[in-house]
Write a protein that binds this DNA or RNA. Structure first.
Length: 449
RNA sequence: GGCUAAGUGGCAGAGUGGUAAUGCAGCGGCCUGCAAAGCCGUCAACGCCGGUUCGAUUCCGACCUUAGCCUCCA
């Protein structure tokens, strides 16, 4: 048994063989910080996080890189719209992204490089690509020549002839061939930019990932794993692969994983459709654990249609686990490592099977006491921090009012004044508190979310 | 139009050449003053059509449908 990963390159599930067992390297495409992060951003970050957890469990050192793209035309546009400078925009949305990811209890990557910190390295890499002979300049742009690079299409399996170019948008005039892409583009003097051998300008979209990877892992090193949303396969990752292979004789990356995108109303989220689900908004009414559970409930390569049903399903299960934990909370919290869970996850991140396994543990908790300790291990391994979530909830509540109302209600119940008792229960309910009469004790909790 | 995926009960989702786990929801019961929780029980599905086979949901082929990409996108 070992780690198996579905490789977009081969379109097969493969045994994971690291380049160097002493240091596994993984890069996952992070966000462009120009707007509030949505549930789709969360999904790919979560998938990266899970791979990170699995790799860390097996290998002593894992270098996990998740970038922040803070140079982009969309950022420039956003700055104009909000009438702020570019830095303010990127800072603001980076902070939101970070805090959203923290809420979802994702581990910090080993590196979180920002493009603006890597401009000299980007210029260096472009220079290397130019000397490899796969570029040309046109209207001030440094272009990558996809026709010259004969392996182009290796990742996305797209053959140039079969593709209809410019179906939905005109091919830019500066391109020799429609699939060619920009490595460096000119900026106006008053625009965001840097001096370079090709004039004042800024990097194109794809080059920053390649540069940051090479800089962090070493220019002649092969990345073990590269991932992101499957909408990035073409052209972004295809382009990265092409330019990356021009920089070194060694292969750019061995394993590529791609998560399915999140759909809302069975369509990809987009501002024009108005179906973008922001993490911020979800967190207002839903516990981060439930959101996370919902994301885990489908396999990462499947598309995930985000619906209230999916979310409610998760809330119900998470609530059940919360109840279980709060009932057991006085018992010692022992975590018994469970290899079965680990091997389920090592098989190409089969989270639905993992969640199912956890539910069978819970179901058989009475027959086998170690199941509870295994259960604690499992939710912890997945980063479903239910235990912490419960303690947060308890500290948030205004104890006195609730306790007072419960006292009053129990007096009423003793007097068999059930109308009054039920009224008080309704009042508690309006305070988001649920109660449960357990023998002669009444216990309460926040309504599940 | 091309390319890439996918179609299992109300929802989510395993899985298999011999008719299919599990969770949630639903329904019934126990419990409760009534609830809630918990427990027990229970209904319900393999897109369509051919082929291979003793037998296919599982293999092969066509078709239909859906989504994504071909422009920026996690």
């Amino acid at each position: 048994m070992g780690i198996k990963i579905y490789n977009t390159l081969s379109k097969k599930k493969e045994d994971f063989k690291p380049v160097n067992e002493d240091n596994i390297t993984m890069y996952v495409c992070g966000p462009t910080v120009y707007s509030n992060p949505h549930i789709g951003n969360a999904r790919s970050a979560l998938v990266g996080d899970l791979w990170y957890r699995i790799l860390k469990n097996k290998y002593k050192k894992v270098t996990y890189i998740r970038n922040i793209t803070d140079v982009d035309d969309k950022i420039i546009d956003a700055a104009k719209k909000e009438n702020r400078n570019v830095n303010e925009i990127t800072e603001k949305y980076y902070k939101t992204y970070k805090s959203n990811m923290d809420s979802l209890t994702l581990l910090d990557p080993t590196h979180e490089p920002k493009v603006t910190d890597f401009i000299p390295r980007i210029i260096e890499i472009i220079t290397k690509i130019i000397s490899s002979g796969y570029t040309y300049t046109s209207e001030g742009n440094v272009m990558f020549d996809t026709v010259k690079y004969t392996k182009y299409g290796k990742l996305s399996k797209r053959i140039a002839k079969e593709m209809l170019d410019g179906v939905r948008i005109d091919v830019a005039s500066y391109k020799k061939s429609p699939k060619d892409f920009i490595l460096w583009k000119p900026s106006h003097k008053d625009q965001l930019g840097w001096d370079s051998p090709w004039g004042y300008g800024r990097p194109g979209w794809h080059i920053e990932c390649t540069s940051m990877i090479k800089e962090i892992i070493g220019h002649d090193s092969t990345l073990d794993i590269h991932g992101g949303g499957n909408d990035l396969i073409f052209p972004h990752h295809e382009n990265e692969l092409a330019q990356g292979n021009c920089v070194s004789k060694n292969e750019y990356c061995n394993y590529w994983f791609h998560n399915g995108i999140v759909l809302v109303n069975k369509k990809k989220m987009s501002k024009s459709l108005g179906n973008v689900v922001l993490i911020e908004d979800l967190l207002k009414n839903t516990s981060p654990i439930s959101i996370k559970y919902a994301l885990l409930s489908s396999h990462y390569r499947q598309p995930l249609n985000w619906t209230s049903e999916v979310l409610n399903n998760s809330i119900n299960i998470v609530t059940k686990y919360k109840n279980l934990i709060s009932e057991m909370k006085n018992n010692e919290k022992e975590y018994i490592p469970d290899n079965e869970l680990v091997s389920i996850l090592e098989d190409d991140l089969n989270t639905p099977a993992a969640l199912n396994y956890i539910s069978t543990l819970v179901k058989n908790i009475n027959n086998n006491k170690s199941n509870y300790s295994k259960f604690l291990f499992c939710i912890d391994f997945l980063g479903l921090n239910i235990v912490d979530d419960i303690s947060n909830v308890i500290s948030e509540i205004d104890n006195k009012i609730v306790e007072q109302l419960i006292k009053e209600r129990n007096v009423a119940r003793l007097k068999k004044n059930f109308n009054k008792a039920d009224l008080i229960r309704k009042k508690l309910s309006s305070l988001n508190v649920e109660i449960k009469d357990d023998g002669n004790q009444t216990v309460w909790k926040f309504k599940p979310k």
